[in-house]
Structures are given as C-alpha cells and as structure tokens.
Design a protein around this nucleic acid. Sequence first.
DNA 1: AGCACGCCGACT
DNA 2: GTCGGCGTGCTC
Length: 803
Amino acid sequence: MDIASVIVDVPAKQTDREFDYRIPEKWKQVIKPGMRVIVPFGPRMVQGFVTGLKSKSDFAKLRNIKEPMDLEPILNDELLKLGDWLTKEAMCFKISALQAMLPAAMKAKYEKVINIIEDKKEQLPPLIQKLFGKHDSLSWKDVIEGEHASLFQKEVQNGNLELMYYVKNRLNKKTVRIIKPLLSPEELKEMASTLSGNAKKQQELLQYFIEHPEPVSLKELLEMVNASSGTVKSLVSKGALVELDQEIYRDPYENRVFEKSNPFTLTDEQAAALKPIQEKIKHDEHEVFLLYGVTGSGKTEVYLQAIASVMDKGKEAIMLVPEISLTPQTVKRFKERFGEQVAVMHSGLSVGEKYDEWRKIHRKEVKVVVGARSAVFAPFENLGLVIIDEEHESSYKQEETPRYHARDVAIQRAKSYSCPVILGSATPTLESFARAKKNVYQLLTLSQRMNKNALPAVDIVDMREELRTGNRSMFSELLFTKLKDRLEKGQQAVLMLNKRGHSSFVMCRSCGLVINCPNCDISLTYHRFNDIMKCHYCGFEEGMPSDCPECASEHIRFFGTGTQKVEEELAKILPDARVIRMDVDTTNKKGSHERLLNAFGEGKADILLGTQMIAKGLDFPNITLVGVLSADTMLHLPDFRSSEKTFQLLTQVSGRAGRHQLPGEVVIQTYTPEHYSIELSAMQDYDFFFEREMYLRRQSHYPPYYYVVLITVSHEDLMKTVSVTDKITNYLSSRLNRDSIVLGPVASPISRINNRYRYQCLIKYKREPDLNQHLRTLLEHYQKETAQNHLQISIDLNPQIMM
DNA sequence: AGCACGCCGACT
DNA sequence: GTCGGCGTGCTC
C-alpha cells in the first residue's frame, strides 16, 4: 500500500478526480486516508487530500508525495464518505466538498517565489542583483508586477534563477512563550551569588524563580518582575532559564464565567416529547423528529436534556442554531449546562478561533458543539444526536457552492451513526411538516407556553385606513397609544421593520426617475450616515446628487423606510423614549450585537428597534409589546415561499412578547390585512396556514409536491445569455418526463449584476432519476466557456431563494 | 486553476 | 529574423 489516491486543490472540471502518488518510504506508516498532503502537480506544488491507499496504479510515471500536512487524519472515514455524498448532492467539485467540511484556516495558502541559484549571483545582470539586494529570494507577484518581468524570465531560462512553489497552512496554532527554570532553586541561588552587582534585574528574575519554580508565560513574568525581555534572554544564554512555545487555544469566551445550571423539571408536554427521543438514543436508532412547539414552549430545555442523555452514553451532539440567533444568550444556556464540554462555531469568530474550536472537537476535548450551518460537519466520531433549531430558517442552506442544506447533511450523518435528528420550530417548513404528517418524520408537539400564558393578543392595523383618516406617519394610532402606555408603565417594546426587498431608494419627485446601479438592474440604496448611494450587489458607490440627472429638478430624495428614519420619527413623537437601534449599521462591529442586547435586557432602553435580526431568540421578561411596522414588504417578492416566510417571521416576532409573567400584545401594521399569511399569523394558527398553503403549492406545482431546480445563466452579452438559457431549457424539456415542468428562459428577478445579464430556467419535477446526469452533461457541454469565465451556469437543487 | 507549448502577426 | 499575443491541452 505505497500509493495514495489524492484529490488536488484545483477546483476545475478536468482535475475533479483522484490522482495517484507514490508514498516515500519514510512516510509509509504515516500517511493515511483523510490527511492533507503537499503534492507536485505539473510544475507547481498543491495541497491535496488523501482519499485512499492502494498498492497498484494504472498510471506508469507516478510522482512522490512531497510531504504530509497533518500528523493524523483530519477527515475520518465517515466524513470522507460524506464528501462523496455532498459532491453528488450539491453537484460540486470533490475538492470543494472536502474543503466545505473544514474550517477556513485549513485551506492552503500558496506562495510562489523566485530564488537565486547558489553561486550564480555574479552572473546576473547588475539591475537584477540590485533588486534582490541582500535577499536570496523575491516574491513572484512583486516581480511580475514590477517593470523588469521579462528580464527575470530570461534569467530563469538561463538557469540563474529558479521558481519555487510553497504550500502553507493558512494559519498556525497560536502559541505563548513560556519561561521555565532549567536549574533547581538551590542552583539558581548559587548563580545569583555569582552575578555581578549591577545585574539587578537578573537578580530579581532569579529570585522570582527561586520562589516560584513552575513555568510562567513570558508576558506575565515581565509584568510581575517589571523586567524586559532582554534580561530574560541573558539568563537564557547563561543556561538558567529556557524559553519554549506552548500551544494554546484562542478562547472567545475567555473572560466569562458560566454558572452551572441544572435541568429544569419538564412540563408534561415536554416530558412526553422527550421520551421517544430518549428511546431512540437508548437503542442507537435513527429517526427524524419534528419538534413542533409554539414560541415560548420550552424547546430548548428538551434539547438540553436530550443532549444530556446522549452524553451519558458517552456520545456527542451537534446543536445547530441559525446564525442570527447564535447570540451569547443562546451560547450561555449551553455553556451553563455543559460547561467545558461545549465548543461554539459561528461566523463572528475569527478564522483562528474557529480553527481552535474545531481542534477541540477533533481532539475529543468537547462533547457538544453549538454552531451555525457549517457546524453540521463537526468532526465527531461517535455522534449521538443532531439538533436543528428553527428548522425553517433559510440560512441553513448555503447559497454558494457547495449549495448544501444543513438539514440534509444532518440526516445523512445521523444515518451513518444510527442516531436521531431533532428538527425544532414553531413554524416548520411545509416540507418538514408534510413529511411529519406522512410519518416520514415523527411529530412531537408542544402546544402550550411554559408559563401557561396565552399566546399574545394580536391586532392587525390596516395602514390604508390610517392614511384615509389622515395619519401619514409610519405609526398607526393604535401602535402609538400602546407604545405610550408601555412607556408610562415602564415596560419594554420591540419594533420590527421588515426591510427585505424594501430598502431606501432614491427617486425624483418631479419626473419619477429612480436611480439605478449602472452595473446591475437594481436601485441603489441610500445610506444616510455618509450620504452616499450604494449597490448591494456589486458594491458600486456614488454620492447623493443635489438635483435630478434626468430633469434637473431639485426634488430628488430618498424613499422607503430605514431603521434610521424610524428612529428619527420616534424621537419626534415620543421624545422621552430611550431607543436602541439594531441593524447592519449598528451591529457590524464585533460584540456590538451582544452589547446592545445586554443594554436592552438591563432595562437601559424602552424600545428595541430593528430588522429581522431581532425576531429570534430574544427572551426578556419585560417585553409586553411587539410592533411590526410593515408586515407585507416581503410578501410581494417573486418567490413561491414569500407567504411562508412572512407567516414565519410574523409568528416568530410575535412570540417575543409576554414570555414570562406579564402578558404580551402584538400590533401588526400592513397594507394587505386580508392576506391569509398575515391573518393566520395574527391568529397564530399554523395548522390552518399549512392547509391553505399546501393547497396553493399543489395547484402551482411547487414543493413539497414537486422538487425544484433553478438554473441561472449569466453572461456579459444579453443575446448569448438568452440563447444559452433557451438551449438548456429545450435540452431539458426534451429529455425529462412528460409530467415534469421546465419553465424558461426568463430574466432573473435581478436581471443584471455587475454588468452580466442573468436568465434562468426553472425545473419542477416529481421523479427524475436521471436529472443529475442530464445536468452534468449540460455543464460538460458548456465547460469550455465556463472555464474561461465568459459564461456562468449555476445549478441550485432545492433553491431556498429564487433570485 | 496555472502553466507550457505552439502557432500567427508586428517590431528591433 | 524574434517577441509576445492568447488558443489548446495537461497535470498522477
């Protein structure tokens, strides 16, 4: 077995297969499947993943592996298999699938340098010698971008310079410098007596180690003795002390203390839900549970106790939470229950912190991981449970390749380990609920809030009516009255502005011109804090014009309601209210999200104003009012799930009110009060919504009745875009079953991004066993054009967003 | 993806 | 005659 099959880090159609390499004698016992290696590939060096070992290869002229990058496999057999599955499932390159399962820090960094070949320095032209200065190597990038690139190239050909390729880890393990004495206290004392009288600091240092012989970090030592590193160095050279680097973890929760919490007594409903889960855990059986529990029904406690059962068996658990609700509040609950056994993975961590959390899992130092989507790949080897909280959240689907859905990955892994999966939500996706009804998943229901309080009372306000009665503000009479009332009672309110698809655009009041991005077919968004207009798709920026570029009128201004504008209006109508605003602008700094929430929790504000990000996970006892300023902004998006999304969001945000002793109220403002998703969310009637929406989905051949694939074609040339999309549509229609539906070509909802036109083709089908093959054939056919990047074809199986 | 190889036009 | 444009094909 001295040959390794390797997947190389070259994401391209032609290299999307295994390449064989000979394992050098000295690493025969070392190199195993699942390790990263550095291999020669053509003229350069690349990173690769060993996927298998064999003793024979069809290829005659094998090259040697240059060196391993790991000491032990970083992907176990299960994850390697999962990689194969993911490759198929997401129709991506194998290498992309493997890399998606690992923290970004483990992706290779490449460096290309140009070196002087030994003894040849004199033969180089003086100009080149001068550019090298006293160095022996220069970065290739600097050389090729400099003015003398061809001169260098010539010398490479002459054999006086050589090109070298390096593959490195993106990141290293973090270390601290540790100082420890090499000698016994007695010997140190002796040395102290021989030191010259003016070496005062050295004396102090020795004295320190005579009293504390144990190792200490350099930083702490210098602070305690008030010495400089030079002093330490001289004692090191005298052989009294030694410096060494000790590997440490970057701990994002370093300075926080978590108080141990104990399991709560479950309500009857909770206990009834937990029991079947524990049965499956006990017997190591696979099952997917759908835990359907109204907001505030205590799903988290069920999760916590299920995890505890898994840990009692010595197994591990993965807890997935949507990115936006992965707040310190959430993390705290898990750390309080399971202490040091918990690793946390989310996008707020630095690359290094994520890497360290990953290593804690890999080394089996933790038993539980709480994290966002990618934590589903946590390298556990004895997985006992996967939980997906807020199962309906669309952020569980990765929108870049590999376009995987964490729910599918979780189920796949749970099958491998023969362990249960819990999908939890107050508003499950239609797909999941339909499966539960068909007993594909097992349905567990929590129908009551833990405090036995009723769900909050909801009022729907018709904003058209408000307008008719002369109220042109963004607050209805009712919402204003209730806000004032809470202010007087010293209770708290949450206001949500549903901004998606409705941001502030700039329009001329005289001629109606809306200012669009020059590169994309979408209006620019106005940003008040620096008075510029910005494109959210390509990053284009422009100053706000003082008059209309079309008709030169001065009446050009921004429209739409941003959170900033709401804040200003609040200050006018309720000048005494203390408001905390949470949106992308106020939460982009690290930790600001947490700081704002803490401030609100401590009662430092009366009103929390924000976008969708406040809809989830907030759990403060003093919130008795929730206001939704415009419920219907995303109802009219060109997406078959827009009703479902609206229903989910409204139900979730309503659930923020009255979770504890004080009863809650909700005011929903809308221009379409008669829409069923608004009406039914006000009645908190999921079951009826489900029936209604299912009926419509069946009518229009959408999930869960049909599967959907979205193909988006983009090209700089409009005609080319249309014609390729047309060919693709025709190709598929002619090959698919008669009851499958192929729609297109149609322009994408955003028909141009970054000067590339976008067209799409939508496939709806019930059963198409060969669809994957057809799609691969299509990609193959356009491979040349896509490789040159003129043409882009993206295939999204089960898309969550139809743009 | 890179990179070499190779085949044509416009220059010292 | 050579330099350099980028089309083509390969990487164990």
